[in-house]
């Protein structure tokens, strides 16, 4: 489904990703871990199409298409969803209107009829019930004045409603209490299916206890330094990232200057 080959990315001419290779198949759940500043969020943003990231080398294919050639909205239409680490506040944009507009934009581009108000409400109520959330958040402006936990729940609700084929979660579990963490985990688990995939960026094993990954990758200095099964995360929990070679030149990777 997603194939990243030798991806090099700079931000303001500073190399951040230095040759990422990652393959995610339909039905799989991947976890990406790694120290702060290793490039995890950059990878998520590049996949979602955010401005300000220069791809110097490498490619990203999504279902065989060149993902990097698509605008952010085209990626959403293709089924990519990024749960933001810092969800953006949109003063004056009502939660219901926002979610309905997003859903209908995505449906329209998938050749599905738009939902009217009644159909939309029915769908949202079902999703809210599944996630054990109430509709209070949707009656307010998007993310405005939300607590950290409310913002993350709101991301999960959007994900549940939009039903992406590839969900990218950027530290969606950070700063959550145990109840909110369970909501996030339930949201991810309810999305799991043979034709969908999930990539979770996380610092914590506690999410991986609730959403068991098929593969765990450690990102360090802009490269995937190590990959393994779910036991890799447990080992990291024990020993930290100390055992991982985080130098840029490791494993024969080109130096940053050569990569640009």
């Amino acid at each position: 489904m997603l194939e990243i080959r030798d991806l090099h990315v700079t931000v303001n001419e500073k190399p951040i990703l230095n040759g990422i290779d990652l393959k995610v198949r339909a039905g799989e759940v991947h976890a990406i871990m790694g120290p702060n500043g290793s490039g995890k969020s950059t990878l998520a943003h590049v996949l979602a199409g955010r401005d300000g990231y220069a791809v110097g080398k490498g490619s990203v294919e999504f279902d065989g298409r060149d993902l990097l050639a698509l605008s952010p909205e085209e990626r959403a239409w293709e089924g990519i969803f990024l749960a933001f680490q810092y969800p953006v506040e949109l003063p004056g944009v009502g939660g219901m209107n926002f979610l309905k507009s997003a859903l209908n934009a995505v449906r329209a581009h998938r050749g599905q009829p738009e939902f009217d108000a009644v159909e939309f409400l029915r769908l949202v109520r079902t999703k809210l019930k599944q996630l054990k959330m109430d509709d209070a958040l949707l009656k307010r402006a998007v993310n405005v004045g939300f607590s950290g936990g409310e913002k993350k729940r709101n991301e999960v609700l959007q994900m549940a409603v939009l039903e992406p084929r590839l969900a990218l979660l950027d530290e969606t579990d950070s700063g959550l209490d145990i109840d909110a963490l369970r909501v996030v985990a339930d949201g991810i688990n309810s999305l799991r299916s043979p034709d969908r995939a999930v990539v979770m960026i996380t610092h914590y094993q506690r999410l991986l206890d609730l959403v068991v990954p098929d593969q765990v990758h450690v990102l360090a200095a802009g490269r995937i330094a190590q990959s393994g099964g779910k036991e890799l995360a447990l080992a990291l929990e024990e020993s930290g990232y100390g055992g991982i070679d985080t130098t840029v030149g490791a494993a024969g990777a080109p130096t940053p200057s050569a990569a640009i």
Binding site: A48, G49, E73, V88, L90, G92, V93, N97, S101, A105
Partner: peptide
């Protein structure tokens, strides 16, 4: 707000719709 525009586009709104939604929200206050 560029962050807001990206957020809306990442959810599937095309650029024109995203801009219009943010302008409408600005004056709707």
């Amino acid at each position: 707000d560029a962050e807001g525009l990206f957020y809306l586009r990442a959810r599937g709104l095309d650029e024109t719709s995203a801009r219009q939604m943010m302008i409408a929200a600005f004056i709707d206050e």
